[in-house]
Design a protein around this nucleic acid. Structure first.
Lengths: 207, 207
DNA sequence: ACCTTATCGTGACAGATGTCACAAGCAGGG
DNA sequence: CCCTGCTTGTGACATCTGTCACGATAAGGT
């Protein structure tokens, strides 16, 4: 309870959660910080520190109760309240994201897909009808989605972001290879492949 | 020259580079740290600090010479030496990555694609024949690829990583939703969608 | 009831990262 | 040639993040 969680610590919490939900039920009821750390490639102290930011729910000598920890993490991350997600941009990447099982296994559901290409609109993909991007506002309020994923070309990204915010979206996961600007109260995360590849390249060079 | 570049600073360098290469030629010959910062959503001081880690090539009163800066950044990132990349796992995501133009525009080329699914092997996709994963070693040495992208299911990731390292790959960009272990001399970067979505979710909850 | 064992929670430290402010430096004009 | 204006490069500072070590604490056995 002593310290504020660090920015990257949040991502570790998500890792812990994913690890707990991914292992099958035939496991011990308790798990130590040591074991959890090994599973996600971090240190035991790190795990304890991260968790301690949200209260004390480990038992000395035993570790953390798996079920309780899982529930706690789910609560911390706020997963219950953010299930519905909309996706904008159904190109190669967007289609792959629609089919991506990693989202579903983490309780997220893509409830609508949008594009501005008239040749795609009306078609069905993975059980969803691709809709005209102009229907964004209506669909967002109807589905109560708070988060959006955008996988559009770089030059379309800012426009789509603006439209999403107008439609009431509060958090955006951006796959477009560009930075976009949002008001302070809108949350934004980037997933930037080519930057990561560049970084890898740098590290190879300066090993 | 005074300080070591920070770990995230490297990603900013890549952003600077991408910005410079993305704007069309009808621009001023010089760009200030201020302008560059605006373009990538950072601060001017940050830009100057990052660049100063690799020497001093700005001119007081004018800014940085665009062409020179672009060349310098390309050199720092080591992009010339790491063009060839192999991809393992041609599912939905892998196919999208094969088609992803962001890599090409950044000088990277996916020179081979692998899978272990016999129904996919031999088929052509985006001008590449999908090859048996057992040919990894031969192809890697033939193409002199140093980097690999893996987009396989979580439970296959570690095995593929081990095989890649045996084949001589030195840097791995991992899209599988799991952590993997590598020897110290192998570079590894994760691109983890669902973790980013979880983080977004958290920030929404604790805004 | 006490001792042993395992593990947590956290204060104190160390290191990394980002911000600020300003002296130094180049360019261009009068 | 000097003065003005703009922008760099960086020391000093502030903040954030991770590591270490250890006292505190629960469980179980004797």
């Amino acid at each position: 309870m002593s310290r504020k969680i660090s920015s990257t610590g949040i991502e570790r919490l998500a890792l812990y959660y994913r690890y707990l939900t991914s292992v099958n039920g035939s496991e011990e009821a308790f798990i130590s910080s040591e074991k959890l750390a090994k599973a996600v490639e971090h240190t035991a102290a790190q795990v304890r520190r991260d968790l301690s930011c949200f209260g004390t729910f480990g038992t000395p000598g035993r570790g953390y109760n798996r079920a309780a920890l899982e529930a706690k993490l789910s609560g911390i991350l706020g997963k219950e309240k953010c299930r519905n997600v909309v996706l904008v941009g159904v190109g190669n990447l967007g289609s792959a994201l629609l089919a991506y099982k990693g989202f579903q296994s983490q309780c997220y559901t893509i409830v609508a897909a949008f594009d501005n290409d008239t040749r795609k609109i009306g078609k069905h993909l993975k059980g969803l009808e691709i809709q005209d991007i102009r229907k964004l506002s209506a669909v967002v309020s109807q589905t109560r989605a708070k988060m959006a994923i955008i996988s559009v070309p770089a030059d379309a990204a800012q426009g789509v972001v603006d439209a999403l915010i107008l439609a009431g979206i509060q958090g955006i996961l951006n796959f477009a290879p560009t930075r976009v600007v949002v008001p302070e109260d809108i949350m934004l995360q980037h997933v930037d492949f080519s930057i990561k590849l560049d970084r890898l390249c740098y590290e190879l060079e300066h090993a």
